[in-house]
Nucleic acid binder design. Structure first.
Lengths: 196, 196
DNA sequence: ATAGGCATGTAAGCAGTTACATGATTTA
DNA sequence: TAAATCATGTAACTGCTTACATGCCTAT
């Protein structure tokens, strides 16, 4: 059980509905957890029946009504136990790095294209996270906020997301460049070796 | 099915037994994929029966015999199709970042300790990956190797691992420092407010 | 003797993904 | 009138994790 705690942590930022959580977890909650919509709805049901969150109906005009959830006292206790327990190692799974690893025996063109696409996504996420940082710290500069702000957790985890996306963007671009140049040289050699 | 391709990519680096693969995937194959031993043994069985890899028995003295596997022609084709296909987004799941996100409502001490531990692990992985890079490029410097080396894939994916571990180490240390300083100030305030 | 590394598996259970289903309302 | 967004689910399947099992050899 692991998604539980990510959901609880996300609900600390305020009441959210299942649908809002799907949006938050689609970006990966500042890049530390991803979850599919269906996972979230069933997790919310379980969390509520375990008494870790409580939901209330919000009536809306012009839109379907929604249920928003808050973390209960028992939910906070659960999070506290989770935070104090050992915890499992970071899990990363990346198709694209597998492709790069194998690229020498393959056609590099589609891999290069995917690297460029990933770089664009990383840049977009980075911009999003940087806006989130500005929003979280308000008028303060980063240093004073981290010293005196009253909720720095989301800020700190968002900083991790920024670092990761920045590195991802730069790695993708430099890898795409390297592979592109190698492919260009390979084409020249082929043209030299088999003309006339 | 996704582990398949990670296993195929790992076997491009040379013949490996199931046990050797468990060691490689335990580190996360330069940090882009993790797999448990039991997953690998069953995946190898399936890959062999699908004809994507072929195994041969290696008789050893002083040790149990082992079966080592090589990628077949069909395996390369499978990898080529995989590399050309769209591919899924990067998956990250990180307990520790969830804890940091929620840290303001919790006891920060165990979180700080886990950040320090993670920083040590990241530093160790970074050192390992940097040795791998030196080993892969041989006598060449990085730039010439990336230009003229004949297998740069593993090098490039290992560079991604380095970037990631470096950032992870630095983020953990700076986050631990921030939280430690806040906790120290909180203790002083408590001591000032309730003495005598 | 005993612990640790090498070597490979089975079985059960839980977590995560994919496909499908519904229905309202706003925007193009 | 079609597509997109809001809103929530069920069902089937695949993949991953955990616990257990075996046995040999080397080093302490």
């Amino acid at each position: 059980m692991a998604l539980r705690h990510a959901v609880l942590a996300a609900l600390l930022d305020g009441e959210h509905s299942g649908y809002q959580l799907t949006k938050i977890f689609d970006v990966g909650v500042s890049n530390f957890w991803y979850a599919a919509p269906q996972q979230l709805y069933s997790e919310l049901t379980r969390l509520e029946s375990d008494g870790l969150i409580s939901g209330r109906e919000v009536v809306q005009r012009g839109r379907p009504n929604k249920r928003v959830f808050t973390v209960t006292r028992a939910g906070i206790d659960e999070l506290a136990a989770f935070a104090a327990a050992p915890g499992r190692p970071l899990l990363i799974r990346d198709d694209l790095a597998v492709k790069v690893h194998a690229v020498d025996l393959l056609d590099p063109a589609p891999v290069i294209e995917q690297l460029r696409e990933r770089a664009r996504e990383a840049a977009a996420k980075l911009a999003l996270f940087e806006r989130t940082l500005v929003h979280l710290r308000g008028e303060l500069d980063e240093e004073s906020f981290l010293r005196h702000g009253d909720r720095v957790g989301p800020y700190l985890s968002c900083l991790a997301g920024c670092r990761l996306e920045r590195e991802m963007r730069d790695w993708c671009l430099s890898t795409a460049r390297t592979l592109g140049e190698r492919a260009a040289r390979a084409r020249i050699r082929t043209a030299e070796g088999s003309p006339e």
